[in-house]
Design a protein around this nucleic acid. Structure first.
Lengths: 156, 156
DNA sequence: GGTGAAATGCCTGTGGG
DNA sequence: CCCACAGGCATTTCACC
């Protein structure tokens, strides 16, 4: 499965297939076949091509964090000491399962993370005991998401 | 499929099943069955329960945006006029397919979004022509993600 | 909760247009 | 790039433990 470093060209049929599977990864291929008027074998062929082109990077069950008691999402901008090696900080952030995303960003912060906690107390503990204690972390700025209104992938 | 508003209790077998399917939604149930030493029927039963409890909120094919030429991710904090009805702004943001997430947050910004663009020029166009032109948007603060190091779901 | 077996239906390779 | 078909499995349900 070589990932080519080019833009993959897809046609309308590919898009239809992808839209079905992006909404429900376990939808039977033959059902998609019936709905778009093409044979199952043709869809399998197209999917193989899309996979080896690197456009499809996998599939996931999506779990609802609220059902596990995770109700507080927050974004945290992290300021690191100038001398700090950022990859070291990232390595430590990876150890914290509540950290869902981590970015190097332009602007004031060195690192920007998205984090999911059970409640505000959990968030405070993470900040005080896990994040602020990482070597090189100077200070942080936290924004709590009161409500997420959009959550999606790029449109195909 | 009623979603109960409680914390769902899951055991170690549920966790194993979920971990397999969170990594690959199309993994055959019988293969999971063999790997964790339980029958396929039992897994189906557990999955039905997990779905009706609301813990599983679906499954998705994950596509690689780079393969479609989307190389620039950015976060944008949006300041709205005090008088502005935020839901109206969100409604307009929903029309912009490049907006992948949208949150109401604590702190200075009224709204915080994650956005995926092809390049910096595309980002600039979105800012100038789509976002700044939304009624009530006063100004914005943009942070470009130079590199995303972590991307995952909450651990089960 | 778990199992095993049976019916149904899917996946995927091949041959051919 | 597409289809049809067939063999081998996976899925799903059911009765039962």
């Amino acid at each position: 499965m070589k990932l080519k470093n080019e833009i993959v060209q897809i046609d309308g049929i590919d898009k239809k297939i992808l839209r079905f599977l992006m909404a429900d990864a376990r939808k039977p291929i033959l059902e998609i076949a019936r709905q778009i008027g093409i044979s199952g074998a043709a869809i399998h062929q197209r999917l193989r091509k899309l996979e080896s082109s690197g456009l499809i990077s996998g599939s996931k069950f999506i779990i609802n964090p609220k059902a596990l008691g995770y109700n507080t999402m927050a974004f945290i901008g992290i300021f690191l000491d100038k001398a700090m090696s950022n990859p070291d900080a990232v390595r430590q952030l990876k150890q914290i399962p509540e950290v869902l995303e981590c970015h190097y960003t332009t602007g004031n912060w060195s690192i920007f993370i998205k984090i999911l906690c059970q409640d505000n107390e959990h968030l405070m503990n993470l900040l005080n005991k896990e994040i602020q204690t990482i070597k090189g972390v100077q200070r942080t700025e936290t924004f709590i998401s009161l409500n997420q209104q959009i959550e999606r992938q790029i449109k195909v």
